[in-house]
């Protein structure tokens, strides 16, 4: 589709990394995240180690409260692990930064900035001139097919449109990885499916590493190369499943044999976990 965007994007990344092709490899090494202390101590993530390969689309799947968002936040840099390290392309994560794009479940566009200004915000902070900023923003806006709404405020847009702008805003920083925290959770079912397909298109074009948190089994299977199933209390990865479904993926896939088998497997893990939690509460 948009060869310009892609080539600009790839050059920019190579330039940033001194000509090397660093493409967003994530290493999580022995990470534990503990909130509070004493009686209030809450182990959100315990002793987790995993590697996410460059360009991989990984879904972190689990019931609510299993620490999947916390794990994502440790990659984003909002949460510092109590022990262990998180590395992105061998650089230790020390705080949030523009090299890791973030898309939130809640609408997070700046309501006082227009759509164009929202997308241009990252480039502006990176020191681009106003001309460069608006040209980058326009490029990404064209990519998501929303040039017509450049000068409208987010409050005028539907939830789906806002999330598309949110994705464009994160990508406009030329990040190494795209971190998504249940980004389509608030959307209706139809919009959700459209957004999933669109996201896969973007991912296919850019080849960017995506870490996508969800509690929806269908969503995880439809999107991912690999699903990490997390269990609650204490949060840890209990299964690492390859999704060997052919791409590009179409919604019809949801009824195929392989999809259903994988779904059964995921649901089994999640159900076992939920039951455990349920019984613990009951006891």
């Amino acid at each position: 589709m948009n060869a310009d965007v892609i080539s600009i994007y790839k050059n920019k990344i190579a330039e940033k990394n001194g000509g090397q092709e660093k493409r967003g490899r994530i290493d999580i090494e022995g990470v534990s995240i503990i909130f509070g202390s004493g009686a209030d101590e809450n182990i959100a993530v315990t002793e987790t180690s995993l590697t996410i390969n460059p360009g991989e689309f990984v879904c972190i799947l689990g019931p609510s409260g299993c620490g999947k968002s916390t794990l994502l936040n440790s990659i984003a840099g909002y949460v510092t692990p109590s022990s262990g390290t998180v590395l992105v392309d061998d650089d230790e994560v020390a705080g949030p930064g523009p090299d890791r794009g973030m898309v939130f479940q809640q609408y997070s566009l700046f309501p006082w900035k227009t759509v164009l200004e929202n997308i241009a915000f990252g480039p502006k902070l990176a020191g681009c001139s106003p001309d460069e900023c608006s040209s980058i923003a326009n490029t990404f806006l064209a990519m998501i097919g929303l040039t017509k709404i450049a000068n409208t405020f987010p409050g005028e847009l539907s939830g789906g449109m806002q999330q598309r702008v949110g994705i464009a805003r994160a990508l406009a920083n030329y990040p190494r990885v795209l971190l998504m925290d249940e980004p389509f959770g608030a959307l209706d079912a139809q919009t959700r499916i459209m957004m999933q397909e669109s996201l896969l298109n973007i991912w296919a074009e850019f080849g960017i590493t995506v870490v996508f948190v969800t509690h929806d089994v269908d969503e995880a299977i439809f999107l991912a190369d690999r699903i990490l199933v997390m269990s609650a209390s204490p949060g840890s990865v209990i299964a690492d499943l390859k999704v060997n479904l052919e791409r590009p993926r179409k919604p019809e896939l949801a009824t195929s044999h392989d999809f259903v088998e994988l779904k059964k497997q995921c649901l089994g893990y999640i159900r076992a976990e939920s039951l455990k939690a349920f019984e613990q509460v009951g006891a």
């Binding site: 005028e156 789906g160 464009a168 139809q190 919009t191 459209m194 957004m195 973007i202």
Partner: peptide, 13 residues
Amino acid sequence: GAGNPLVTPDSVK
């Protein structure tokens, strides 16, 4: 149609 990621025809106000 074709080739435009993130183009969803619904979700338009």
